[in-house]
Amino acid sequence: MAGPASSTALRFDHVTVRFDEVTALDDVSLEIFEGESCVILGAAASGKTVLLKTALGLIRPDAGRVYVFGREITRLPEDELQRIRARIGMVFQEGGLFDSLTVEENVAYPLRYQPGARYAPEEVRRRVEEALRFVELEHTLEKFPSELSGGMRRRVGIARAVVTEPDLLLYDSPTAGLDPITAYTIMALILKERDTRRATTVVVTQRYQDGVWLSDFRYNPSNGRLELAAGDGEVGGAATRFVVFREGRLAFQGSRAELEGCADPYVAKFARR
């Protein structure tokens, strides 16, 4: 939904990414507006993760252009990219935590090392504790990632991504391989972050259920639970967009109702609950 004040957080303009013989992204054009939620569905190895890494500038496209907050990043040098990355939070598939650092040091990492970040040690400590309280892991400060369960590692990954209060959050398969209860906890955190700070949220997933959470539910701060949002697919004025990838190509793009009505058998497979 292109509201009056909304501009694009992320724009892909005919982007192609190749690895040797494999084409990971094939002529992908996509726009995600600020404040919007985007659910990216697709089978394994369909280019979903590559899309997120290209958005961060970790992978440079072979053709096409990528814009982040209206700025083209395709040919930016690494140190300029770092400044843009500071506005993006990324949660990697398995959390991507640094094994050699404690949970506290992991979450403090962007505050300490991001270019332009100058925080006093007490400020770092306060924000780390706040971020860990957000994911309800404030008791694990001194632990190492290897001592945590898979779900906890991802929660720490979320804490590390939100600690800098970024404007755009990218989640790479946040619920993959988790039991339904833990998956719910993770999705609740993603919605909590989205609905309290209105950050643009992009979630890559293989489970349609995650998309339903994002499009139909919202976080209720009074009881800390997710509840069905009023209206159809609109939460807080921003729509949830669904995107389906097939072998590096965009197979579908639209709202949830459109997705469920889509006749394409591949796309329809994802729309089944």
Partner: peptide, 18 residues
């Protein structure tokens, strides 16, 4: 190498360090 295969190198870049 283990950092590379567990996406820690990517995370490092994503979090603003070279």
């Amino acid at each position: 190498g283990s950092m590379k295969v567990t996406e820690q190198i990517d995370a490092m870049r994503a979090l603003g360090t070279d």
